[in-house]
C-alpha cells in the first residue's frame, strides 16, 4: 500500500515538472505572426519603391538601378548610382525611419546603400530571408534590391 502511495507521489512530481517545463516556454504565436507581417511589409516596400518615379527623370527607380549597374550615363547626365541612393534614402527615411524602424536598403553588387544606424550584428533574424526585389537587366540577368530591418 505504501508503495502505491509512493508511486502516486512520483507520478505527480513528474507531471508537475513536465507541466512546468512546457508552460514556462515563451508564447511566440504573436511573434511568428509579426515576423510574417514584417516580411510582407518589407516585400511590399521593395515592390513599391522599385516602381516609384524618380523626380527629374520621369522613369521608375528600377530603371535608374538598371542604369547604375550597367554604368550608363543617364537622366541629368549625372551618376545614376548617386541619384538612386539619394532617392532610396529619401523614401526610406520618410517612411521606415519615421515609423521607428532602422533599416539597410541596398542594391546587390554595388556600393549603393541607404541605411540608418543599422549595425549588421543587429539585423533581425526571421523565419523568412530578407526580402529581395529582382530588377531585370536583360539577357535573363537580374540584380536584387535588398531590404533588412534592424532590431
Amino acid at each position: 500500500m505504501e508503495m502505491i502511495g509512493l508511486v502516486f507521489i512520483v507520478v505527480i512530481i513528474i507531471i508537475g515538472m513536465v507541466l512546468y517545463l512546457s508552460l514556462s516556454g515563451k508564447d511566440d504565436s504573436g511573434a511568428r505572426a509579426n515576423r510574417a507581417a514584417n516580411a510582407q511589409k518589407s516585400s511590399s516596400f521593395l515592390t513599391a519603391i522599385a516602381e516609384t518615379d524618380i523626380v527629374g527623370c520621369g522613369v521608375p527607380l528600377s530603371r535608374v538601378a538598371q542604369a547604375c549597374v550597367r554604368r550608363e550615363v543617364f537622366c541629368d547626365n549625372g551618376d545614376p548610382c548617386i541619384t538612386l541612393e539619394r532617392a532610396m534614402t529619401k523614401i526610406a527615411n520618410e517612411t521606415l525611419y519615421a515609423q521607428g524602424m532602422k533599416y539597410n536598403l541596398s542594391l546587390e553588387g554595388t556600393r549603393v546603400q541607404a541605411e540608418s544606424d543599422c549595425d549588421s550584428a543587429n539585423l533581425s533574424v526571421s523565419l523568412i530571408a530578407a526580402p529581395r526585389q529582382p530588377i531585370p537587366l536583360g539577357n535573363g540577368q537580374t540584380v536584387d534590391l535588398i531590404l533588412s530591418i534592424c532590431r
Binding site: A37, K41, S44, T47, I49, E51, Q99
Partner: peptide, 20 residues
C-alpha cells in the same frame, strides 16, 4: 492598425508615387 506600401498613380501626369 496595418500599414502596407504600394504605388499611388497620378493619372494627369502619369506619374507613380510611393505611398502607404
Amino acid at each position: 492598425t496595418t500599414t502596407t506600401y504600394f504605388t499611388a498613380f497620378e493619372p494627369v501626369n502619369s506619374t507613380r508615387q510611393f505611398a502607404m
